[in-house]
Each structure stands twice: as structure tokens, then as C-alpha cells.
Nucleic acid binder design. Structure first.
Lengths: 251, 251
DNA sequence: CGTTCTTTTGATGATGCTCAACTGGGGTGG
DNA sequence: CCACCCCAGTTGAGCATCATCAAAAGAACG
């Protein structure tokens, strides 16, 4: 991916103003501009104001913040989580490049969760009111936007299935299979990748404790299904993981 | 609600062709036409083809069915559930009048779950391609549609929080509080209502067993927080339920 | 090299599941 | 009308899974 050379005049952190361009972005086959022709992509580019860098552990938005933008992840990884009244956090998703953040905020005009970068990341800011104006003129864009929202709904339904019905082993296998396929869709190896999140974050997402995750990793390693080195994962037996995730663990 | 008098010429079940009219529907303040003026509501009415009756336990659509329509519930209650490879079902939601069914199907052009009526019900069929055409002309409608999809996303996130973080008692209290507030929004009593779903379905939804639900009901009754008679619920201590749902159960 | 945070591993225990028996209401047929 | 069945729900006893608590071992960082 070609990065324009930058001269940085004392940049305020997080506020790097770089022209975002969908046509030049390697993610445009997965992201919002999918399927647009040159002309329409230019019109989309015109409303995307700037790219914004978020450092590791930096917050993109917080629950309760006024909703003005959607964010397309251009680079890096994020987590989103809700905080309940008791202060407990529940991670509702891990997002990677090409995915859209903030769709849950449309309903109440305020963000419904926190979004935090798991590593140094970059997003494209998409002012939602201007995007809505574009919808009237580019039906393809609108349709694809609906697909992305719908996809978020089905993704969450799958997590509900996971949290409601699966045992620990199955949850964790499903988690790995999911990551694997998403990396594959981005042209990365489905068998060798880095976990960008801590054991604790994985556990939180899966409704398990950090200790359980650690034990599962150890066991999967011992069984020869994985090679594990800190956050470096090598999947040795993808078929086995898939069958575990499908629930045929004990059969 | 005024029902037009019908002469029924050997109606095929489920295929009752009745003109649906948003303007005459008591749910239009909650449903898709929310906020539309007379003229736009008429245009929406024009594309809504028919009302369809679904008897108790009748299937509105099945996972894998081609996606052609959204459905607005006019009357009655539904459940949606996913079936995993092992044949286990996970209920992903209970829907009531004024709510929209089928939004999860947009992403893949096929339904992603089954929708089944919990009692004799009626829906309005909304052909999605025609709705999309309308979006170009009625920005208010589009915006509200986005709010409804977004609301579904936040709803599911709350269920993830529930399934991932809460203990049984808290889950069940949250479930009751949720039902209560939805009935209130529809002008029904928030303290006296009928459960339309079985104990087993509640348990499935909450990631618990039927026995646990039964025990929780007995305990809530014993504590004096509820009066229970089969599926008839009377909430005696709404504040207590809310505080349980918020996680201050043991404090 | 020490400090701190993350992860691993072990021992113990509680929450909620499984299995089983029983109750009660509603419908059916004698 | 009553006997019976069937299904949904209730209640109890024992147990498994995963959480909790504790301690030690590795990484990461200055």
C-alpha cells in the first residue's frame, strides 16, 4: 500500500488531516465503496473529510458521544465494548480494516458503545448526514450500506448463538475460525496471524475468564491443533477447529 | 382498531389479501412510517401489498428462503431463531406489533433465521426493492429505516451484554424489564401482561434451561416481586426488578 | 536489572445443568 | 361427565463446567 510522503507541521495527535481516497484504498472491495464505478467513487471521496490516526489504546469515540461520523477502518484493529451500570465492560466486537464503525449510533444520535484501537490504527471519517445526501443519488451505495448494516445484525446474531448455546471449547474454536476467515478475505494467511487483543479481551468477548482462555490455548496446543507463541497463532489443523466450532467436538 | 368487513371467498390460509394502510394502523408511530406526512404515508401505503395472517406456530419465513420482503408486525408476537449445524436452536429475539422483521436478510439476499408466530398474528408485507425505490424520494423514510436497523444492532448488543456478563437472576430480571417497557411503549400496562412464549423459549433466549426459569419465577414470586399465574405476569415491585437488571442484586 | 503487567498453572468451589419424578390444566374420547 | 392422556411447568438431588482465588513464571519496559 503506497503512503504519500508527509511533512508533519507539529501534528496534533489523532488529528492528522490527510485526504482520504477510496479509489486508492486497498480495502474498497470490502468497504463502503464496494461496487461503485469511478465517477461515484469520486463523489464518495469528496465527502470523506480526512483520515484520522488513533494510537494504540486510543479512543475513537465513547458511549454517549454525539453521533456525527461513521468510521471506516483503513488500517489496524479496534474493539467496541459496552459498559453496564456496574462498570463491567462487555466487548461486543473486534473490527479490522475494511469494516465500518459507529452504525449502532444512528438510532439514538449518540454512540452506544466505546471504540478503542487495539494497535496504532487509521480510520476514514464519514460524515453521516452527507453520506445520507449521497444515498439519494447513488442507489448502489445505499444498497451496499444496507448490506453492511444487515451484516452487522447477522454477525451479532451469531455471537448470540455462541454465547447462548456453546461450551467454552466451542466458543473459542468459533472465535479462531472467524478470525481466520476474515484474514483470508483480506488476503492474509488464514493459518498464521497475530492476535491483536489480550487473553483477557478474548475472554470478555466470549463470556469466559482469562484463565479459561489460557487453558484452552494450552490444550489446543497440546492436542496439536495450534502452535502458540505469545500472541502469534499458527493453525495446524483448520478442519479440526471448524468441526469443533460446528459443535462436533465430542462426537 | 377498525377492521374492514370481509367477505371471504374460500381464503387460502396465510394468503388473506387485505389492503394494508399505514395511516389507519395504530402502530404507525412506532413502525416504519413514523414521522411521515399524509402524502408520503400514502406513497408508502401504495407499495405495501397485502396483509398476511400467520397462525400460532406458523412460519413467516425460514432460514435460507430468498429475501423479497420485510415484514411489519401489525398484530401478535413472533420469535426468531437460528439453527446451528447440530440442530440446536437459539432464539435471537421476540418481536411484537410495530416491529420490523427480516432486516438480517438484506446482507445475503436470504433469510438468516426462522421467524415463527407465537400466537395468531398479522404482518404487512413490504417488498424491499420497492421500498428502496421510495428511499430516493422520501429522505425521512430512509432516515427512519436506518434508525430501525441501528436499533436492532443496539438491541442485539444489549443481549450480548446479558449473555456474556450477567448471572441468571439478572438476565431474567432484564428480560422482564425489557418486556415491560415495550408494552408500555405500546400503551399496554407495564405491570400486567401475558407471556406469549413458553418457559422453554425464555430459557433458550436467555441462555438458561427451562428449570432455571421455573425456579427464578418461583423465587421472584416468593420474594413478592411478582405475581405469577401460568403465563400471566403481574409485576409487584418494578423498582426491584430494575435494580436487579442493573446488577445491584447482591449489594 | 528491577518493576510491572500479562499469562500460565493449580486447587477449590459455586452456579446452573442434567436427570428424574411429580403436579396440574386442557383436551379427547368413552 | 368422568377418566385418561399429554404437554407444560415445577421441584428436588447430584454433578459438571467454568469461575474464583492464589501463586509463580514470563514478557515488556524503562
Amino acid at each position: 500500500m503506497i503512503q504519500p510522503i508527509q511533512v508533519l507541521p507539529l501534528p496534533t495527535v489523532n488529528m492528522q488531516v490527510l485526504r482520504a481516497s477510496c479509489s486508492a484504498c486497498s480495502m474498497h472491495q470490502l468497504c463502503l465503496p464496494m461496487g461503485l464505478d469511478e465517477a461515484d467513487m469520486t463523489r464518495l471521496d469528496a465527502i470523506i473529510g480526512r483520515r484520522r490516526r488513533i494510537p494504540r489504546d486510543g479512543t475513537l469515540y465513547r458511549m454517549g458521544d454525539l453521533f456525527t461520523n461513521l468510521y471506516a477502518i483503513r488500517l489496524g484493529h479496534f474493539k467496541t465494548y459496552q459498559v453496564d451500570v456496574g462498570g463491567e465492560q462487555q466487548i461486543t466486537g473486534f473490527q479490522m480494516a475494511g469494516e465500518l464503525l459507529g452504525m449502532d449510533a444512528i438510532s439514538a444520535d449518540r454512540h452506544h458503545c466505546d471504540a478503542v484501537a487495539l494497535e496504532d490504527s487509521e480510520v476514514c471519517e464519514i460524515p453521516f448526514p452527507r453520506l445520507e445526501e449521497l444515498f439519494g443519488n447513488i442507489p448502489t451505495l445505499l444498497h451496499h450500506f444496507h448490506r453492511m448494516m444487515s451484516q452487522e445484525i447477522t454477525r451479532e446474531q451469531s455471537v448470540m448463538l455462541l454465547l447462548g448455546n456453546m461450551r467454552a471449547e466451542q466458543r473459542f474454536a468459533a472465535f479462531l475460525v472467524n478470525l481466520s476467515s476474515r484474514y483470508a478475505a483480506r488476503g492474509y494467511s488464514p493459518t498464521n496471524f497475530q492476535l491483536r487483543m489480550s487473553r483477557e479481551e478474548i475472554g470478555n468477548y466470549l463470556g469466559l475468564t482469562i484463565e479459561s482462555i489460557s487453558r484452552l490455548l494450552s490444550r489446543f496446543k497440546k492436542e496439536g491443533w495450534l502452535r502458540v507463541n505469545n500472541r502469534e497463532i499458527e493453525v495446524l489443523d483448520p478442519a479440526m477447529l471448524k468441526s469443533l466450532a460446528a459443535g462436533s467436538g465430542s462426537c
